[in-house]
Design a protein around this nucleic acid. Structure first.
Length: 218
DNA sequence: ATATCGATTATCT
DNA sequence: GATAATCGATATG
């Protein structure tokens, strides 16, 4: 298995990074790196789009339904993976925020592939004929989970601050540029809250274009 | 026990 | 731009 030379730079973020309100974590995660490593694969991607889901008071959040078997990770300690299954087809990856007992999370909406795009394409079952095809790998929450082999059975509850978990979040020398903010995508409650964050102009951000601050005028 | 619906995506027109 | 696909969690009876 090939291993990139920058492997040693991908030290996991500390847990304190996630022990904050989701809005702040979502913003701070832009430009960080998601890493998947196990015996047979090494994949990395730059985080370019996130959404914050607040605690029980956020009607769009899964934690609004309370602490259930499904949402327990959101109420647990920060820095852990909350993976849920959606629309009968896809998984989505979140990281828990706040301190133990208070719900909150950040949804990973899009990555820019850094290493392992061939393996991502295999998992996604798409051909990499042109550079445009790279956009199909990790632009969208369901897509990036598929590209990284993320499932609920495998990854829900795993510690994203430990490189022994096989999935973690790291910092490198990259500096985020201009950050765009908009309403969250695909929800039907609290639709106007500006809780989506993305690197302005980055082509891997999901959506038709980069969503405007106001999704629709009326 | 059954019905509804979703933090999506691919594939049409 | 619109819609089908697909199934687990949740709500309702």
């Amino acid at each position: 298995m090939p291993t990139p030379s920058h492997r040693d730079d991908l030290t996991p973020l500390e847990r304190a990074f996630f022990a904050r309100p989701p809005q702040r974590v979502a913003r701070a995660l832009l430009g960080k790196v998601l890493v998947r490593q196990d015996k047979n694969e090494f994949l990395t991607g730059r985080i370019v789009e996130t959404e914050a889901y607040l605690g029980k008071d956020d009607p769009a959040s899964h934690s609004a339904a309370g602490n259930t078997a499904r949402t327990a990770v959101l109420f647990g300690p920060p820095g852990h993976a909350y993976v849920y299954f959606i629309y009968g087809n896809y998984y989505c990856l979140n990281v828990s925020c706040e301190r133990d007992g208070k719900a909150g999370g950040v949804l990973f909406r899009a990555l820019e592939p850094l290493f392992g795009s061939e393996q991502m394409a295999q998992k996604r079952k798409v051909a990499l004929a042109t550079t445009r095809d790279l956009l199909k790998l990790t632009s969208g929450p369901g897509r990036l989970a598929q590209a990284f082999g993320i499932t609920r059975a495998r990854d829900n509850g795993c510690d994203l601050t430990s490189d022994t978990s096989g999935l973690w979040i790291a910092r490198d020398n990259f500096r985020a540029g201009k950050v765009g903010i908009s309403a969250r995508i695909g929800i039907t409650k609290a639709v106007d809250d500006p809780l989506r964050f993305f690197l302005s102009g980055n082509p891997f951000v999901s959506g038709p274009k980069n969503q405007p601050a106001r999704p629709k005028t009326r």
